[in-house]
């Protein structure tokens, strides 16, 4: 992405003959960027490098590898339980907003659902940046008041005997849900298992895909 391609023009009002026009929000962003680079707070190329990382390198495939390893290797699962940040770092997923990770394991007795009621804290290194719905007020409110209703919105119906526990993320604590391993996947490679692990299943708004959906 280049810095100067957010070039919009509006047809709903008159403007200069040949000139361009940028929306107000883009002007605000450019003003900040100009000031931060003039004052030396942001070095050239840093912004583009960060954007590229989050657009292409970090995403829910990272978390899926963690889950697949946890399903396959009981010793790894134990390390995740003891110190999730360190166990996740073993796979090379370190960095921003993943400093204090905690895993929560789904079982037939308890399903886990992650939300950030105040803003949108989210485990970037393993899931990338949050989807739009995670950042929305309806999700943030409803997850706490009616988690079973949230699951219904996502097409998930859990047995009545499965309790739902909601985890509210903070700037200090980020949660990764380990979904239940689907039936019929004994002996599968981690790579094949990872193809069943969706982003939503690691937030808790969905379950891992059934074995028949494997890549």
């Amino acid at each position: 992405m280049t810095q100067h391609d957010d070039h919009h023009h509006h047809h709903d009002h008159a403007h200069g003959e040949a000139g361009s026009e940028l929306p107000d929000i883009a002007l605000r962003v450019r003003a900040l960027e100009t000031i931060l680079s003039e004052k030396g707070y942001v070095q050239p190329g840093v912004i583009d490098a960060i954007v590229e990382t989050y657009e292409t390198k970090i995403g829910p495939r990272n978390g899926a590898q963690v889950v697949a390893r946890a399903w396959s290797d009981p010793a790894y699962l134990e390390r995740l339980r003891q110190d999730a940040t360190a166990a996740i770092a073993e796979l090379g997923f370190v960095g921003r907003q993943g400093e204090h990770m905690v895993v929560v394991e789904n079982t037939p007795r308890q399903h886990n659902l992650v939300v950030c009621t105040l803003c949108s804290c989210y485990p970037w290194p393993v899931l990338g940046l949050p989807p739009v719905w995670y950042k929305s007020a309806p999700y943030r409110a409803k997850a706490v008041i009616d988690p079973r209703g949230v699951l219904a919105d996502f097409g998930v119906a859990l047995p009545a005997e499965t309790a739902i526990r909601v985890w509210d993320s903070t700037a200090e604590l980020r949660y990764l849900v380990i979904p239940m391993r689907p039936a019929g996947t004994d002996g599968w490679s981690e790579e094949r298992l990872a193809s069943l692990v969706t982003r939503d299943s690691m937030i808790g708004t969905s379950l891992a895909l059934p074995a028949g959906d494997a890549a």
Binding site: I25, E33, V51, P138, Y139, D153
Partner: peptide, 27 residues
């Protein structure tokens, strides 16, 4: 309660300014 706005997977950033603003805070 309003419906949760779910849509299919969309790009991480929908407009370049969003990406720039995101990255400046991180930096």
């Amino acid at each position: 309660l309003p419906t949760i706005p779910r849509q299919g997977d969309i790009p991480v950033f929908q407009e370049p300014w969003q990406a720039q603003a995101f990255a400046m805070a991180v930096a």
